[in-house]
Nucleic acid binder design. Structure first.
Lengths: 159, 159
DNA sequence: GAAAGATTGTTTGATACCAAACTAGTTTGA
DNA sequence: TCAAACTAGTTTGGTATCAAACAATCTTTC
């Protein structure tokens, strides 16, 4: 147990002492959230200038690399629920970054393609994304492979 | 570059082939999001039964371990923006899990305490949280220390 | 001791996300 | 062949999160 050496951060509370993180400090889930949040916020700030929303990056990138992909497949590839994609795709189509085409053999679905405009903006955003991830690479140093492996395993195996 | 061996997942797109993740697959940020999302969803499902919302766990835990903590300090300790806390604390107080007391020397702020009720529910939720994190521990195995270290560094150093 | 600046908490307006229920098509199996 | 089961996408309702702008209150500085 960690009762012997209570873990603290440097912020202070009103009783004058430091903050006790307690059990929380041993929780992978807690630190996963902190890291992801910090990383996402940073990414958002870095890409705030462009007219492509940060949330669009992964989607547009996947559409570009997989022309004709359907929303359902995109949902699985991007790890987001299909219902999350609906409004995002609507806006990306409205703004002319993505086009949809009907699929003959399945009239429920449709195929997605990046427009030239979309590809251009993606390149823009990709520069910022690469910069951001380079920063992450610096932080993790030579442990990147292990980290990616662990993150992939968590995403795949947690239920 | 990863052009030599395009990385794929087992889902299929309409053109018949597998999904190409492309550059995305090398991005720490992307996998961080996937892992965090999967983990959070799982935690949410596991704690869905209790009448304490999953988002309350870290906060209540911190309040319990740091009696008299203020919202601002709580914000820093939990890694959430102060404006995120406002409605959460309001609800936790309304539901009787947390109490607030005025602070004499600073009338802008207030001190937070877990009620006995709150402590009891926290114990409940902590059981589920521990179970969930045990699952994460299993997945990462003996690399837990490195993982926590990397996540802490990311949270601390990214800007 | 008062004006200027900093900090605390709240409000408001966005984005991101999920899950359940629904609609409209497609597939299966008796 | 056609009803039942399944699947794709949308809608609706809920949580979580930030950032900017604001009011109230402290703190600093001259």
């Amino acid at each position: 147990m960690n009762e012997a050496k209570p873990l603290r951060v440097e912020t202070e509370n009103m009783s004058g002492g430091d903050i006790v993180l307690g059990k929380l400090d041993d929780y992978i889930g807690f630190h996963l959230r902190l890291a992801q949040n910090a990383s996402f916020r940073s990414f958002q700030r870095k890409t705030g200038q462009t007219d492509l929303r940060p949330g669009w990056f992964a989607l547009l990138s996947l559409i570009k690399d997989n022309p004709g992909i359907t929303p359902m497949t995109l949902s699985r590839a991007s790890g987001r629920d299909k219902s999350t994609l609906t409004p995002l795709l609507r806006d990306m189509i409205r703004d002319g970054f993505v086009e949809k085409q009907p699929i003959a053999r399945d009239r429920r679905s449709y195929a997605l393609f990046a427009t030239p405009e979309g590809s251009a903006r993606l390149a823009d955003l990709a520069r910022h994304a690469a910069e951001h991830d380079r920063r992450l690479d610096q932080i993790v140093g030579d442990q990147k492979a292990e980290l990616l492996n662990l993150l992939r395993r968590i995403a795949a195996e947690i239920d």
